[in-house]
Amino acid sequence: MRAAVKLVIEEVIPVATAITISGLVKDFGPRSRALDALNLQVRTGEVHGFLGPNGAGKTTTIRVLLGMLRADAGRVSVLGGDPWRDAVALHRRLAYVPGEVNLWPNLTGGEAIDLLGDLRGGLDADRREALLERFQLDPTKKIRAYSKGNRQKVALVAAFSSDVELYLLDEPTSGLDPLMESVFQDVVQELRAAGRSILLSSHILSEVEALCDRVTIIRAGRAAESGTFDELRHLTRTSVVVDTAVPPTSVARWRGVHDARVHDSHAEFSVDPGELNNVLEHLVGLQVRSMITSPPTLEELFKRHYGEDTVPARGSGAEVVTSR
């Protein structure tokens, strides 16, 4: 069934970047800085994950990209245009799903989808039908009768029914069930295959890992990290669990070792990415009996970047590493 309603999306000719933000500052009042010299780059044709703890400035950033908030400093370019000045022209070429979907309670879902599509400059009727079927959304119900998840689907169908160059998705799946989550992922993959650019703000790590080519992590209004997952992993410590014949009493003093816990001949610690080889040389001398090393899980990766009190891995917290 799914194959029958697959979306037909035409190829677009790529330009270099879909979104470029450099040094973006946004203040709400004199002592309330929401964005503090933020840098972000979304390349054309990529799915870019936008991550960060609550209140870090993700939604503010997206609203600046939509020209709803005005940048106080810095340069912002969306599809080659200025989002404040060229808002309307740009909005014909992009679609937006807000994190909190507030629509008109007395319209039906179908009416809201058509309305938003028409206001954007038209939607593809076949795609609309296909998406309604895939997301299993009844378009005859009034918005006020929909659950949170179904309201979210209305916004998703409205956005995906338009064939545009850029999709701005602000926590688009926060109310979806796992089946709908996988439909969402399929649709995003199809859009990526067709060369569309997507900025995806999300807290669902598995979704981000499955979909995103690159991610930017934002904290307190600044980009804390940016790159592919592999690149991010390389910046983060590996955890090591080891048993040795000679008790590893000196582990904590080795270069690059953190959080070491030693018990008799057993040691658990984490190692900075650049120091792994050095640590191995030490371990060989202690006659290793068994050893497990594990790369940081996504969870650890994010916790490290989100948490304020944890020791930052090398390279993070420093200025942003955007273009690679």
Binding site: T108, G110, E111, I113, D114, L115, D118
Partner: peptide
Amino acid sequence: PERRGAPHATPALSSPIGLVRRQ
């Protein structure tokens, strides 16, 4: 009663003016 409604927007609704009129 909470009635069901139209699955499609009429052309009259599909503009900002039409939306306000409807509301």
